[in-house]
Write a protein that binds this DNA or RNA. Sequence first.
DNA 1: CAAAAACTCCGTAGAAATACGGATTTTTTA
DNA 2: TAAAAAATCCGTATTTCTACGGAGTTTTTG
Lengths: 225, 225
Amino acid sequence: MASVKTKIAKPINVLIIDDHKMVRDGLKVMLGSLKQFMQFSVFEAESGEEALKKKDFNAIDLMIIDYNMPGMSGAETVFAVLRSKPEMKILALSNYSELPYIQNMVDAGAKGYILKNIEPAEMLRAIKTILSGNKYFSNEVAIKLLDEQEEKTMQKIRLQKFITPRENQVLQMIAREMTSKQIGEQLFVNSRTVDSHRRNLTKKLNAKNTVGLIKIAYKLNLIEE
Amino acid sequence: MASVKTKIAKPINVLIIDDHKMVRDGLKVMLGSLKQFMQFSVFEAESGEEALKKKDFNAIDLMIIDYNMPGMSGAETVFAVLRSKPEMKILALSNYSELPYIQNMVDAGAKGYILKNIEPAEMLRAIKTILSGNKYFSNEVAIKLLDEQEEKTMQKIRLQKFITPRENQVLQMIAREMTSKQIGEQLFVNSRTVDSHRRNLTKKLNAKNTVGLIKIAYKLNLIEE
DNA sequence: CAAAAACTCCGTAGAAATACGGATTTTTTA
DNA sequence: TAAAAAATCCGTATTTCTACGGAGTTTTTG
Protein backbone atom coordinates (compact mmCIF):
# COMPACT_ATOMS: atom_id res chain seq x y z
CA MET A 1 0.00 0.00 0.00
CA ALA A 2 1.32 3.44 -0.82
CA SER A 3 2.25 5.49 2.15
CA VAL A 4 0.32 8.59 2.87
CA LYS A 5 2.31 11.02 4.92
CA THR A 6 -0.27 13.72 5.44
CA LYS A 7 -3.91 14.03 4.72
CA ILE A 8 -4.12 16.31 1.73
CA ALA A 9 -7.41 17.42 0.21
CA LYS A 10 -7.43 16.77 -3.50
CA PRO A 11 -6.83 20.06 -5.31
CA ILE A 12 -9.47 21.42 -7.62
CA ASN A 13 -8.37 21.67 -11.24
CA VAL A 14 -9.37 25.07 -12.49
CA LEU A 15 -8.99 26.23 -16.05
CA ILE A 16 -8.97 29.97 -16.49
CA ILE A 17 -9.88 31.18 -19.95
CA ASP A 18 -9.15 34.81 -20.57
CA ASP A 19 -7.17 36.65 -23.20
CA HIS A 20 -5.63 39.06 -20.70
CA LYS A 21 -2.66 37.74 -18.80
CA MET A 22 -3.29 40.27 -16.10
CA VAL A 23 -6.72 38.93 -15.39
CA ARG A 24 -5.44 35.37 -15.34
CA ASP A 25 -2.69 36.33 -12.95
CA GLY A 26 -5.08 38.20 -10.75
CA LEU A 27 -7.33 35.20 -10.56
CA LYS A 28 -4.41 32.92 -9.77
CA VAL A 29 -3.38 35.13 -6.91
CA MET A 30 -6.88 35.21 -5.59
CA LEU A 31 -7.26 31.44 -5.81
CA GLY A 32 -3.89 31.07 -4.11
CA SER A 33 -5.04 33.27 -1.26
CA LEU A 34 -7.79 30.78 -0.60
CA LYS A 35 -5.46 27.85 -0.15
CA GLN A 36 -6.26 27.53 3.53
CA PHE A 37 -9.81 26.72 2.54
CA MET A 38 -9.39 25.00 -0.79
CA GLN A 39 -6.46 23.91 -2.95
CA PHE A 40 -6.40 24.78 -6.60
CA SER A 41 -4.33 23.59 -9.54
CA VAL A 42 -4.61 26.34 -12.05
CA PHE A 43 -4.47 25.82 -15.81
CA GLU A 44 -4.69 28.59 -18.30
CA ALA A 45 -5.91 29.24 -21.82
CA GLU A 46 -5.83 32.46 -23.78
CA SER A 47 -8.86 31.67 -25.88
CA GLY A 48 -11.80 29.36 -26.22
CA GLU A 49 -10.10 27.60 -29.10
CA GLU A 50 -7.04 26.89 -27.02
CA ALA A 51 -9.13 25.65 -24.13
CA LEU A 52 -10.89 23.11 -26.30
CA LYS A 53 -7.56 21.67 -27.43
CA LYS A 54 -6.24 21.12 -23.92
CA LYS A 55 -5.30 17.50 -23.37
CA ASP A 56 -6.05 17.60 -19.67
CA PHE A 57 -9.48 18.85 -20.59
CA ASN A 58 -11.17 15.94 -18.90
CA ALA A 59 -9.34 16.45 -15.65
CA ILE A 60 -10.72 19.96 -15.26
CA ASP A 61 -13.23 20.41 -12.46
CA LEU A 62 -14.12 24.00 -13.02
CA MET A 63 -13.72 26.55 -15.76
CA ILE A 64 -13.72 30.27 -15.28
CA ILE A 65 -14.45 31.93 -18.59
CA ASP A 66 -14.27 35.59 -19.45
CA TYR A 67 -17.19 37.13 -21.24
CA ASN A 68 -15.51 38.95 -24.03
CA MET A 69 -12.57 37.53 -25.87
CA PRO A 70 -11.34 37.84 -29.41
CA GLY A 71 -12.22 34.84 -31.54
CA MET A 72 -14.74 32.61 -29.80
CA SER A 73 -16.80 34.61 -27.40
CA GLY A 74 -17.28 33.51 -23.85
CA ALA A 75 -20.76 32.25 -24.61
CA GLU A 76 -19.60 30.30 -27.64
CA THR A 77 -16.85 28.77 -25.58
CA VAL A 78 -19.27 27.72 -22.90
CA PHE A 79 -21.50 26.15 -25.49
CA ALA A 80 -18.66 24.31 -27.19
CA VAL A 81 -17.26 23.04 -23.91
CA LEU A 82 -20.59 21.71 -22.78
CA ARG A 83 -21.12 19.92 -26.03
CA SER A 84 -18.10 17.78 -25.37
CA LYS A 85 -18.53 17.61 -21.61
CA PRO A 86 -22.06 18.48 -20.51
CA GLU A 87 -21.44 18.20 -16.80
CA MET A 88 -18.59 20.71 -16.76
CA LYS A 89 -18.96 23.41 -14.13
CA ILE A 90 -18.51 26.81 -15.65
CA LEU A 91 -18.29 30.16 -13.96
CA ALA A 92 -18.73 33.18 -16.19
CA LEU A 93 -16.61 36.19 -15.43
CA SER A 94 -17.34 39.65 -16.69
CA ASN A 95 -17.15 43.34 -16.14
CA TYR A 96 -20.72 43.77 -17.16
CA SER A 97 -23.79 43.19 -15.10
CA GLU A 98 -26.24 43.92 -17.90
CA LEU A 99 -28.98 41.46 -18.58
CA PRO A 100 -28.11 40.55 -22.17
CA TYR A 101 -24.59 39.50 -21.24
CA ILE A 102 -25.71 37.43 -18.30
CA GLN A 103 -28.47 35.99 -20.38
CA ASN A 104 -26.06 34.90 -23.08
CA MET A 105 -23.77 33.10 -20.71
CA VAL A 106 -26.54 31.47 -18.75
CA ASP A 107 -28.30 30.40 -21.91
CA ALA A 108 -25.08 28.88 -23.14
CA GLY A 109 -24.92 26.87 -19.94
CA ALA A 110 -22.78 28.77 -17.45
CA LYS A 111 -23.63 27.83 -13.88
CA GLY A 112 -22.69 31.13 -12.39
CA TYR A 113 -21.94 34.72 -13.21
CA ILE A 114 -19.57 36.88 -11.23
CA LEU A 115 -18.12 40.31 -11.74
CA LYS A 116 -14.44 41.06 -11.86
CA ASN A 117 -14.55 43.13 -8.72
CA ILE A 118 -15.37 40.01 -6.73
CA GLU A 119 -13.76 39.59 -3.30
CA PRO A 120 -11.88 36.40 -2.41
CA ALA A 121 -14.50 35.37 0.13
CA GLU A 122 -17.24 35.65 -2.42
CA MET A 123 -15.14 33.82 -4.98
CA LEU A 124 -14.76 30.94 -2.57
CA ARG A 125 -18.46 30.88 -2.00
CA ALA A 126 -19.13 30.99 -5.73
CA ILE A 127 -16.78 28.10 -6.43
CA LYS A 128 -18.12 25.99 -3.60
CA THR A 129 -21.67 26.64 -4.69
CA ILE A 130 -21.00 25.67 -8.26
CA LEU A 131 -18.95 22.59 -7.50
CA SER A 132 -21.81 21.33 -5.39
CA GLY A 133 -24.06 21.55 -8.41
CA ASN A 134 -25.85 24.79 -7.64
CA LYS A 135 -25.83 28.15 -9.31
CA TYR A 136 -24.18 31.31 -8.17
CA PHE A 137 -24.71 34.93 -9.14
CA SER A 138 -23.20 38.07 -7.78
CA ASN A 139 -25.60 40.24 -5.93
CA GLU A 140 -25.00 43.10 -8.27
CA VAL A 141 -26.26 40.91 -11.01
CA ALA A 142 -29.49 40.37 -9.17
CA ILE A 143 -29.87 44.06 -8.67
CA LYS A 144 -29.53 44.70 -12.35
CA LEU A 145 -32.08 42.08 -13.14
CA LEU A 146 -34.58 43.70 -10.87
CA ASP A 147 -33.80 47.20 -12.02
CA GLU A 148 -34.81 46.03 -15.44
CA GLN A 149 -38.18 45.07 -14.03
CA GLU A 150 -38.45 48.31 -12.13
CA GLU A 151 -37.93 50.34 -15.26
CA LYS A 152 -40.78 48.45 -16.86
CA THR A 153 -43.01 49.31 -13.97
CA MET A 154 -42.12 52.96 -14.21
CA GLN A 155 -42.89 53.01 -17.90
CA LYS A 156 -46.14 51.30 -17.19
CA ILE A 157 -47.13 53.92 -14.67
CA ARG A 158 -46.21 56.73 -17.02
CA LEU A 159 -48.15 55.13 -19.80
CA GLN A 160 -51.23 54.40 -17.83
CA LYS A 161 -51.55 58.10 -17.21
CA PHE A 162 -51.40 58.59 -20.93
CA ILE A 163 -54.05 56.17 -22.05
CA THR A 164 -57.55 56.38 -20.67
CA PRO A 165 -59.09 53.68 -18.51
CA ARG A 166 -61.40 52.65 -21.28
CA GLU A 167 -58.57 52.42 -23.73
CA ASN A 168 -56.64 50.37 -21.26
CA GLN A 169 -59.59 48.04 -20.92
CA VAL A 170 -59.95 47.68 -24.66
CA LEU A 171 -56.25 47.04 -25.02
CA GLN A 172 -56.43 44.21 -22.54
CA MET A 173 -59.29 42.68 -24.46
CA ILE A 174 -57.51 43.01 -27.76
CA ALA A 175 -54.63 41.21 -26.13
CA ARG A 176 -57.01 38.38 -25.30
CA GLU A 177 -57.38 37.86 -29.02
CA MET A 178 -60.85 39.31 -29.12
CA THR A 179 -62.17 41.12 -32.19
CA SER A 180 -63.68 44.57 -32.05
CA LYS A 181 -67.08 43.02 -32.44
CA GLN A 182 -66.61 40.69 -29.51
CA ILE A 183 -65.24 43.47 -27.38
CA GLY A 184 -68.17 45.67 -28.25
CA GLU A 185 -70.60 42.95 -27.24
CA GLN A 186 -68.91 42.41 -23.95
CA LEU A 187 -68.74 46.11 -23.15
CA PHE A 188 -72.25 46.74 -24.47
CA VAL A 189 -71.08 49.32 -26.94
CA ASN A 190 -71.01 49.46 -30.68
CA SER A 191 -68.12 47.73 -32.37
CA ARG A 192 -67.40 51.00 -34.11
CA THR A 193 -66.79 52.54 -30.75
CA VAL A 194 -64.26 49.88 -30.05
CA ASP A 195 -62.70 50.70 -33.38
CA SER A 196 -62.39 54.29 -32.29
CA HIS A 197 -60.60 53.29 -29.13
CA ARG A 198 -58.41 51.05 -31.16
CA ARG A 199 -57.55 53.85 -33.51
CA ASN A 200 -56.76 56.22 -30.67
CA LEU A 201 -54.59 53.63 -29.01
CA THR A 202 -52.68 52.99 -32.19
CA LYS A 203 -52.04 56.67 -32.57
CA LYS A 204 -51.17 57.33 -28.93
CA LEU A 205 -48.84 54.38 -28.69
CA ASN A 206 -47.33 55.13 -32.02
CA ALA A 207 -48.01 51.67 -33.35
CA LYS A 208 -48.46 50.66 -36.96
CA ASN A 209 -51.15 48.11 -36.26
CA THR A 210 -52.57 45.76 -33.67
CA VAL A 211 -49.31 43.90 -33.52
CA GLY A 212 -47.63 47.05 -32.32
CA LEU A 213 -50.27 47.50 -29.66
CA ILE A 214 -49.68 44.04 -28.30
CA LYS A 215 -45.97 44.51 -28.29
CA ILE A 216 -46.29 47.62 -26.19
CA ALA A 217 -48.80 45.98 -23.94
CA TYR A 218 -46.35 43.15 -23.43
CA LYS A 219 -43.37 45.31 -22.83
CA LEU A 220 -45.24 47.12 -20.16
CA ASN A 221 -46.70 44.06 -18.55
CA LEU A 222 -50.19 45.29 -19.26
CA ILE A 223 -51.12 41.76 -20.13
CA GLU A 224 -51.98 39.38 -17.39
CA GLU A 225 -51.56 35.67 -18.02
CA MET B 1 -18.76 70.17 27.42
CA ALA B 2 -20.46 66.86 28.12
CA SER B 3 -18.18 64.07 29.09
CA VAL B 4 -17.85 61.12 26.79
CA LYS B 5 -16.67 58.07 28.60
CA THR B 6 -16.36 55.70 25.70
CA LYS B 7 -16.69 56.11 22.01
CA ILE B 8 -19.97 54.53 21.10
CA ALA B 9 -21.23 54.27 17.55
CA LYS B 10 -24.78 55.52 17.28
CA PRO B 11 -27.12 52.51 17.25
CA ILE B 12 -29.27 51.88 14.23
CA ASN B 13 -32.98 52.04 14.91
CA VAL B 14 -34.58 49.02 13.34
CA LEU B 15 -38.28 48.37 13.18
CA ILE B 16 -39.23 44.76 12.64
CA ILE B 17 -42.70 44.22 11.24
CA ASP B 18 -43.89 40.66 11.39
CA ASP B 19 -46.95 39.01 12.83
CA HIS B 20 -44.99 36.08 14.27
CA LYS B 21 -43.29 36.73 17.58
CA MET B 22 -40.91 33.90 16.85
CA VAL B 23 -39.62 35.53 13.72
CA ARG B 24 -39.24 38.86 15.47
CA ASP B 25 -37.35 37.22 18.29
CA GLY B 26 -35.15 35.34 15.89
CA LEU B 27 -34.30 38.55 14.11
CA LYS B 28 -33.56 40.30 17.38
CA VAL B 29 -31.17 37.57 18.38
CA MET B 30 -29.46 37.74 15.05
CA LEU B 31 -29.12 41.51 15.16
CA GLY B 32 -27.80 41.19 18.71
CA SER B 33 -25.16 38.74 17.54
CA LEU B 34 -23.84 41.43 15.24
CA LYS B 35 -23.27 43.96 18.00
CA GLN B 36 -19.50 43.81 17.61
CA PHE B 37 -19.97 45.21 14.13
CA MET B 38 -23.06 47.33 14.48
CA GLN B 39 -25.37 48.37 17.29
CA PHE B 40 -29.10 48.06 16.88
CA SER B 41 -32.05 49.40 18.80
CA VAL B 42 -34.87 47.12 17.90
CA PHE B 43 -38.51 48.17 17.74
CA GLU B 44 -41.33 45.86 16.87
CA ALA B 45 -44.72 45.91 15.23
CA GLU B 46 -47.10 43.04 14.67
CA SER B 47 -48.70 44.50 11.61
CA GLY B 48 -48.40 47.18 8.97
CA GLU B 49 -51.17 49.14 10.63
CA GLU B 50 -49.39 49.13 13.95
CA ALA B 51 -46.13 50.18 12.33
CA LEU B 52 -47.73 53.22 10.76
CA LYS B 53 -49.03 54.39 14.13
CA LYS B 54 -45.64 54.23 15.87
CA LYS B 55 -44.75 57.58 17.33
CA ASP B 56 -41.02 57.04 16.95
CA PHE B 57 -41.68 56.36 13.30
CA ASN B 58 -39.42 59.16 12.21
CA ALA B 59 -36.50 57.95 14.25
CA ILE B 60 -36.46 54.61 12.45
CA ASP B 61 -33.47 54.06 10.18
CA LEU B 62 -34.41 50.73 8.74
CA MET B 63 -37.50 48.60 8.51
CA ILE B 64 -37.54 44.88 8.06
CA ILE B 65 -40.93 43.85 6.77
CA ASP B 66 -42.29 40.36 6.35
CA TYR B 67 -43.91 39.48 3.08
CA ASN B 68 -47.12 37.88 4.23
CA MET B 69 -49.04 39.22 7.11
CA PRO B 70 -52.73 39.28 7.97
CA GLY B 71 -54.30 42.66 7.28
CA MET B 72 -52.01 44.90 5.30
CA SER B 73 -49.67 42.82 3.23
CA GLY B 74 -45.98 43.44 3.24
CA ALA B 75 -46.13 45.22 -0.08
CA GLU B 76 -49.00 47.44 1.04
CA THR B 77 -47.09 48.29 4.16
CA VAL B 78 -44.01 49.21 2.19
CA PHE B 79 -46.07 51.41 -0.06
CA ALA B 80 -47.84 53.12 2.82
CA VAL B 81 -44.62 53.70 4.72
CA LEU B 82 -42.93 55.24 1.73
CA ARG B 83 -45.84 57.54 1.13
CA SER B 84 -45.25 59.19 4.46
CA LYS B 85 -41.47 58.84 4.45
CA PRO B 86 -40.10 58.26 0.97
CA GLU B 87 -36.48 57.89 1.98
CA MET B 88 -37.11 55.07 4.44
CA LYS B 89 -34.85 52.08 3.96
CA ILE B 90 -36.86 48.91 3.78
CA LEU B 91 -35.68 45.36 3.69
CA ALA B 92 -38.23 42.78 2.62
CA LEU B 93 -38.14 39.46 4.38
CA SER B 94 -39.76 36.34 3.03
CA ASN B 95 -39.75 32.61 2.79
CA TYR B 96 -40.39 32.78 -0.90
CA SER B 97 -37.92 33.41 -3.65
CA GLU B 98 -40.49 33.41 -6.43
CA LEU B 99 -40.51 36.26 -8.86
CA PRO B 100 -44.03 37.59 -8.23
CA TYR B 101 -43.37 38.05 -4.53
CA ILE B 102 -40.07 39.75 -5.07
CA GLN B 103 -41.61 41.84 -7.79
CA ASN B 104 -44.38 43.02 -5.51
CA MET B 105 -42.07 44.14 -2.80
CA VAL B 106 -39.60 45.80 -5.10
CA ASP B 107 -42.36 47.54 -6.99
CA ALA B 108 -43.72 48.84 -3.72
CA GLY B 109 -40.33 50.29 -2.97
CA ALA B 110 -38.39 47.80 -0.89
CA LYS B 111 -34.65 48.28 -1.24
CA GLY B 112 -33.76 44.69 -0.65
CA TYR B 113 -35.14 41.21 -0.47
CA ILE B 114 -33.76 38.51 1.76
CA LEU B 115 -34.90 35.03 2.67
CA LYS B 116 -35.54 33.87 6.18
CA ASN B 117 -32.73 31.38 6.09
CA ILE B 118 -30.25 34.24 5.91
CA GLU B 119 -27.00 33.95 7.88
CA PRO B 120 -25.92 36.72 10.27
CA ALA B 121 -22.97 37.66 8.07
CA GLU B 122 -25.19 38.11 5.08
CA MET B 123 -27.70 40.02 7.15
CA LEU B 124 -25.00 42.44 8.16
CA ARG B 125 -23.99 42.87 4.57
CA ALA B 126 -27.59 43.41 3.54
CA ILE B 127 -28.17 46.05 6.19
CA LYS B 128 -24.95 47.86 5.43
CA THR B 129 -25.70 47.84 1.76
CA ILE B 130 -29.15 49.24 2.19
CA LEU B 131 -28.22 51.88 4.73
CA SER B 132 -25.65 53.15 2.27
CA GLY B 133 -28.37 53.68 -0.28
CA ASN B 134 -27.87 50.60 -2.41
CA LYS B 135 -29.96 47.54 -3.03
CA TYR B 136 -29.47 44.08 -1.73
CA PHE B 137 -30.85 40.75 -2.84
CA SER B 138 -30.11 37.26 -1.63
CA ASN B 139 -28.32 35.15 -4.13
CA GLU B 140 -31.09 32.60 -4.16
CA VAL B 141 -33.32 35.35 -5.37
CA ALA B 142 -31.04 36.02 -8.29
CA ILE B 143 -31.00 32.37 -9.16
CA LYS B 144 -34.75 32.23 -9.25
CA LEU B 145 -34.87 35.24 -11.48
CA LEU B 146 -32.55 33.63 -13.95
CA ASP B 147 -34.24 30.26 -13.79
CA GLU B 148 -37.33 32.04 -14.94
CA GLN B 149 -35.43 33.20 -17.98
CA GLU B 150 -33.96 29.77 -18.51
CA GLU B 151 -37.36 28.15 -18.61
CA LYS B 152 -38.31 30.58 -21.34
CA THR B 153 -35.26 29.61 -23.29
CA MET B 154 -36.09 25.94 -23.01
CA GLN B 155 -39.58 26.55 -24.26
CA LYS B 156 -38.14 28.53 -27.08
CA ILE B 157 -35.87 25.70 -28.11
CA ARG B 158 -38.69 23.21 -27.97
CA LEU B 159 -40.83 25.47 -30.06
CA GLN B 160 -38.24 26.23 -32.63
CA LYS B 161 -38.10 22.56 -33.42
CA PHE B 162 -41.79 22.68 -33.99
CA ILE B 163 -42.01 25.60 -36.33
CA THR B 164 -39.97 25.65 -39.50
CA PRO B 165 -37.17 28.14 -40.13
CA ARG B 166 -39.21 29.95 -42.70
CA GLU B 167 -42.17 30.19 -40.38
CA ASN B 168 -39.91 31.50 -37.70
CA GLN B 169 -38.62 34.11 -40.07
CA VAL B 170 -42.10 35.17 -41.06
CA LEU B 171 -43.13 35.34 -37.43
CA GLN B 172 -40.31 37.72 -36.66
CA MET B 173 -41.35 39.92 -39.51
CA ILE B 174 -44.96 39.93 -38.47
CA ALA B 175 -43.72 40.99 -35.07
CA ARG B 176 -42.03 43.94 -36.74
CA GLU B 177 -45.48 45.13 -37.67
CA MET B 178 -45.06 44.22 -41.31
CA THR B 179 -48.00 43.17 -43.45
CA SER B 180 -48.03 39.98 -45.48
CA LYS B 181 -47.49 42.05 -48.57
CA GLN B 182 -44.42 43.75 -47.18
CA ILE B 183 -43.01 40.49 -45.94
CA GLY B 184 -43.56 38.89 -49.33
CA GLU B 185 -41.72 41.71 -51.02
CA GLN B 186 -38.80 41.44 -48.69
CA LEU B 187 -38.57 37.67 -49.01
CA PHE B 188 -39.19 37.77 -52.76
CA VAL B 189 -42.20 35.53 -52.52
CA ASN B 190 -45.86 36.03 -53.18
CA SER B 191 -47.85 37.61 -50.40
CA ARG B 192 -50.14 34.61 -50.59
CA THR B 193 -47.22 32.43 -49.62
CA VAL B 194 -46.73 34.54 -46.57
CA ASP B 195 -50.40 34.11 -45.84
CA SER B 196 -49.90 30.37 -45.95
CA HIS B 197 -47.09 30.54 -43.45
CA ARG B 198 -49.18 32.79 -41.32
CA ARG B 199 -52.04 30.35 -41.43
CA ASN B 200 -49.78 27.43 -40.54
CA LEU B 201 -48.27 29.38 -37.68
CA THR B 202 -51.65 30.26 -36.30
CA LYS B 203 -52.68 26.64 -36.38
CA LYS B 204 -49.43 25.28 -34.98
CA LEU B 205 -49.28 27.77 -32.17
CA ASN B 206 -52.93 27.42 -31.46
CA ALA B 207 -53.59 31.12 -31.80
CA LYS B 208 -56.84 32.78 -32.74
CA ASN B 209 -55.21 35.53 -34.76
CA THR B 210 -52.08 37.57 -35.23
CA VAL B 211 -52.38 38.89 -31.72
CA GLY B 212 -52.03 35.35 -30.45
CA LEU B 213 -48.95 34.84 -32.56
CA ILE B 214 -47.27 37.88 -31.14
CA LYS B 215 -48.14 36.89 -27.62
CA ILE B 216 -46.50 33.55 -28.06
CA ALA B 217 -43.53 35.08 -29.79
CA TYR B 218 -43.15 37.44 -26.88
CA LYS B 219 -43.51 34.84 -24.21
CA LEU B 220 -40.76 32.86 -25.79
CA ASN B 221 -38.50 35.77 -26.46
CA LEU B 222 -38.63 35.08 -30.14
CA ILE B 223 -38.74 38.79 -30.67
CA GLU B 224 -35.55 40.74 -30.58
CA GLU B 225 -35.71 44.46 -29.69
C1' DC C 1 -70.34 76.34 -14.22
C1' DA C 2 -67.59 76.23 -18.24
C1' DA C 3 -64.03 73.90 -20.61
C1' DA C 4 -61.67 69.84 -21.36
C1' DA C 5 -61.40 65.13 -21.61
C1' DA C 6 -63.37 60.84 -22.24
C1' DC C 7 -66.70 58.01 -24.26
C1' DT C 8 -69.88 57.14 -27.58
C1' DC C 9 -71.84 56.51 -32.39
C1' DC C 10 -71.70 56.51 -37.46
C1' DG C 11 -70.71 56.71 -42.85
C1' DT C 12 -67.64 55.43 -46.49
C1' DA C 13 -63.83 52.70 -48.29
C1' DG C 14 -59.90 50.34 -48.92
C1' DA C 15 -56.34 47.29 -46.95
C1' DA C 16 -55.31 43.34 -44.51
C1' DA C 17 -56.23 39.09 -42.34
C1' DT C 18 -58.68 34.74 -42.00
C1' DA C 19 -60.90 30.51 -43.84
C1' DC C 20 -60.96 26.59 -46.96
C1' DG C 21 -59.14 23.72 -50.26
C1' DG C 22 -55.80 22.55 -53.26
C1' DA C 23 -51.42 21.96 -56.23
C1' DT C 24 -46.55 22.29 -57.56
C1' DT C 25 -41.73 22.58 -56.62
C1' DT C 26 -37.79 22.27 -53.67
C1' DT C 27 -35.33 20.44 -49.88
C1' DT C 28 -34.46 17.19 -46.27
C1' DT C 29 -33.87 12.89 -44.62
C1' DA C 30 -34.36 7.94 -43.77
C1' DT D 1 -33.49 7.29 -54.27
C1' DA D 2 -38.08 7.31 -52.57
C1' DA D 3 -40.87 9.36 -49.02
C1' DA D 4 -41.63 13.15 -46.06
C1' DA D 5 -41.37 17.77 -44.97
C1' DA D 6 -41.06 22.41 -46.26
C1' DA D 7 -41.84 26.11 -49.21
C1' DT D 8 -44.17 27.95 -52.86
C1' DC D 9 -48.35 29.66 -55.45
C1' DC D 10 -53.31 30.35 -56.32
C1' DG D 11 -58.73 30.97 -56.35
C1' DT D 12 -62.73 32.44 -53.83
C1' DA D 13 -65.07 34.59 -50.12
C1' DT D 14 -65.76 36.62 -45.66
C1' DT D 15 -64.35 39.00 -41.69
C1' DT D 16 -61.62 42.18 -39.46
C1' DC D 17 -58.81 46.08 -39.29
C1' DT D 18 -57.38 50.67 -40.64
C1' DA D 19 -58.16 55.36 -42.33
C1' DC D 20 -60.54 59.76 -42.41
C1' DG D 21 -63.77 62.82 -40.81
C1' DG D 22 -67.45 64.22 -37.99
C1' DA D 23 -70.59 64.76 -34.08
C1' DG D 24 -73.35 63.98 -29.86
C1' DT D 25 -73.23 62.68 -24.85
C1' DT D 26 -71.31 62.00 -20.45
C1' DT D 27 -67.83 62.73 -17.03
C1' DT D 28 -64.05 65.12 -15.00
C1' DT D 29 -61.88 69.00 -13.49
C1' DG D 30 -60.14 73.77 -12.82
